[in-house]
């Protein structure tokens, strides 16, 4: 089998907040069609990694390539236009706009579409996330779960090639979680590469074909989910059985 193309390639990424090293020379690559799960204890650097990848803040060291071009210093908006989208851990809807308008902005800017084509993409993203019935509601009037769905719909409406999901499954009931899993599977089926941070590991494992475990700003395990979950270092990172 031919090896799929590398879409996102981050090398030796470091990030410090003051004296605190949050990311310590992390190497991370996403290939076409991959579904990657990221786990790790709180403070491991998972969200920071995503923020550096998406361009929310610059790394202190290392390089990032997106579709073969260096984007280490490229602003987030341009990375989005080139096919990298991210959902926010804490939803950030455009409160004064309707649910549909939220996805429409993404379609007109992230995906750079106009007119009918933009409407179609925005509608399709809402439909995929089951939000059409509340499309005309102002985002300020929807609850937390719908806001999380909207994060996903809006990211989809930018027509990403790589989609970074930051804990969109938190607080879901079992039924809602399986709905989400079905949606994510559909995205993978459409050829979007997924990188998903999630604390609810059993949900993540229904989708992820590759699992990464982070701890203390480093990737401590990377591979097929079953072997990563049974990895000694991973178990120790979670249970903290090795005193420093």
């Amino acid at each position: 089998m031919q090896l799929a193309a590398t879409l996102l390639d981050a090398r030796q990424i470091s990030k410090r907040f003051g004296a605190l090293v949050v990311l310590d020379r992390v190497d991370f690559a996403v290939r076409e069609g991959e579904a990657i799960g990221i786990v790790g204890p709180n403070g491991a650097g998972k969200t920071t990694l995503m923020n550096v990848l998406s361009g929310a803040y610059p790394p202190d060291g290392g390089t990032i390539e997106l579709l073969g071009e260096t984007v280490t210093k490229t602003p987030a908006a341009q990375r989005c236009s080139r096919g990298l989208a991210k959902t926010h851990q804490i939803p950030r809807p455009f409160l004064g706009m309707t649910v549909f308008e939220n996805t429409y902005v993404a379609a007109t800017h992230g995906a750079a579409l106009q007119g009918e084509a933009a409407y179609d993409l925005a509608y399709d993203a809402l439909k995929l996330c089951g939000m059409v019935p509340i499309a005309n509601r102002k985002a300020e009037a929807i609850g937390l779960l719908d806001r999380k769905r909207l994060e996903l719909a809006r990211a989809l409406a930018t027509r990403p090639k790589v989609l970074l999901l930051d804990e969109i499954g938190g607080g879901l009931t079992d039924a809602e979680a399986s709905e989400l899993v079905a949606t994510i599977r559909e995205l993978i089926h459409r050829g979007i590469s997924i990188v998903w941070i999630e604390h609810i590991v059993h949900v993540l494992l229904q989708v992820a074909k590759r699992l990464i475990c982070m701890a203390d700003g480093k990737i401590i395990a990377d591979g097929n989910p079953a072997s990563v979950m049974s990895d000694k270092a991973v178990v120790e990172a979670y249970l903290g059985s090795t005193p420093e």
């Binding site: 998406s54 929310a56 602003p75 987030a76 908006a77 341009q78 989005c80 236009s81 989208a85 991210k86 926010h88 950030r92 809807p93 455009f94 902005v105 993404a106 800017h109 992230g110 995906a111 750079a112 809006r154 990211a155 409406a157 930018t158």
Partner: peptide, 8 residues
């Protein structure tokens, strides 16, 4: 959020 959906 505007930045992250591609708005300059």
């Amino acid at each position: 959020a505007a930045t992250s959906v591609g708005v300059d």
